[in-house]
Each structure stands twice: as structure tokens, then as C-alpha cells.
Design a protein around this nucleic acid. Sequence first.
DNA 1: TAACTATGTAAGGAAATCTAACATGTTATT
DNA 2: AATAACATGTTAGATTTCCTTACATAGTTA
Lengths: 111, 111
Amino acid sequence: MANETSYKDKKVITIGIVSELTGLSERQIRYYEERKLIFPDRTPGGSRKYSFSDVELLMEIAEKIEDGVQTHEIRKEMTRSKKKLTPEEAKRRMIQGQLNVQFGLRKGPFS
Amino acid sequence: MANETSYKDKKVITIGIVSELTGLSERQIRYYEERKLIFPDRTPGGSRKYSFSDVELLMEIAEKIEDGVQTHEIRKEMTRSKKKLTPEEAKRRMIQGQLNVQFGLRKGPFS
DNA sequence: TAACTATGTAAGGAAATCTAACATGTTATT
DNA sequence: AATAACATGTTAGATTTCCTTACATAGTTA
């Protein structure tokens, strides 16, 4: 009942497009998956599918990599920030959720 | 300066996924393009790319087709409604635009 | 020095998409 | 009624996109 999902989290983007969007090579994107930083869905045929959230995350990862942070460090940071998020961020997310309900797709398949 | 675009209008979805999302066959989706109801982008290699807005539009088209409306009628309706939209809808869209600015992607490539 | 990290590249194969053409049942038009 | 247009399926062959695996390598860590 809670936690409605919107466009942002729908996994519909193939790796080629993600590569274009992020500027990362497909090699890099697959590697970050191997290092458990990103978790695409798959088509029945086995092609990877990403969401806009994934694209955002990949860009954050790219920044950290550029700053010399290693994948396993990034992984730790991620599990850490997944655990406890600031009250402000929590509130912001709840508001966003409300907005999604109010103004999101009407009767579409993305609610 | 005005008219910022968000996830919803980014053309990043391939036809197979659109087909899944809408329940339409790829044949149908290509045909509606031929009838000028939908306008996907293309990759350099020539593959079609759609946005979530396109997906929504396709679902509306599908409904009308089911109701027996012909493509060229739908086309007329579309150009007509593109011209003048109700004040309520206009207002709703402006509010939505504001929300995108407030709560959309921070410094990402989709603003 | 030996292992690990991050990335490139190549090969071969499979999946996804493309266009064009033909078939068909259903609606319009004449 | 005959002809044309509409909407969709299907097939074929070509091209694009994606997959995994493996090897190479420069830089980093142990």
C-alpha cells in the first residue's frame, strides 16, 4: 500500500542508452554491476534494463571513481547510507511520494 | 529558459519495452508512427526510442482504436487538443512544472 | 614481487530491431 | 456490388545491439 513507484524507478533503459546518458562505457557499467553497485533487471532474452534512478546512481558512482574511491569502498558507503538516512532526506522522500500520488500518471501502469 | 524537460519526456525506451508496457504489438506501434500519431527518436543505428510520455500517448491511442476511432481521426483530435487546452489542464501542467523544479533531479542531466 | 583494481578490446553468438512485402478481414467510398 | 482504404499479422533477410568469456595492461595495494 505504501511506497508507490513512478517513472524514475521503472527499469526500461538498455545499456547502450545508459552509456550515452552517463558517459560511461558499457564495460564500466557491467563492471560496476559485477562489483554489486548496481542491479539491473533483465529481459527474458537476457538484456539488461536500467531505471533513471540507476542512471543517477551510476553518475554518482562515476564521480567517486574519479575521486579515486574504490568500488568496494563505494559499496560500503552505499549499504551504510541505505541504513540510516537523515530525517530531512526521509521527509523529502515522503513528500515526493505524496506528490507522485497527487500528480503522477492517472490510471497508468506506473503507479 | 522555460520549458525544462524531465524523465517523462526523455526518449530512452526501445520498442520491445514499449510493447510490453502498452500491450501493443510492435507492428501496431510502428503503424501508428506511419500514421503520424507518434514520433520516436532514433539511435545512430536506426532503432526507435520512446519516452514515458510516448507510452502514455500510445495507451490513449489504443483506447480510441478499441472504441473504433480511426487513426486519421485520432490525428485530427490530437492537433486540435494541441492547439487549445483547458485552463484547468494548463494550470495543472504549470504546477507540475514547478514541482519538477522543486523536487526533480539535482544537477542531473534531466532537468 | 605478487595480487588486485579498473578498463579496453576482441571474438563469437544470441537477442532485438529494422524495412519491405504479402496476406487478410474489416470498413469506407464510389 | 466493386473497389479502395484501414488495421494488423506474418515472414524474410539484413543490421544493430547486447551477451559472455577471455586476454591485455597500467596503476595500486598488500
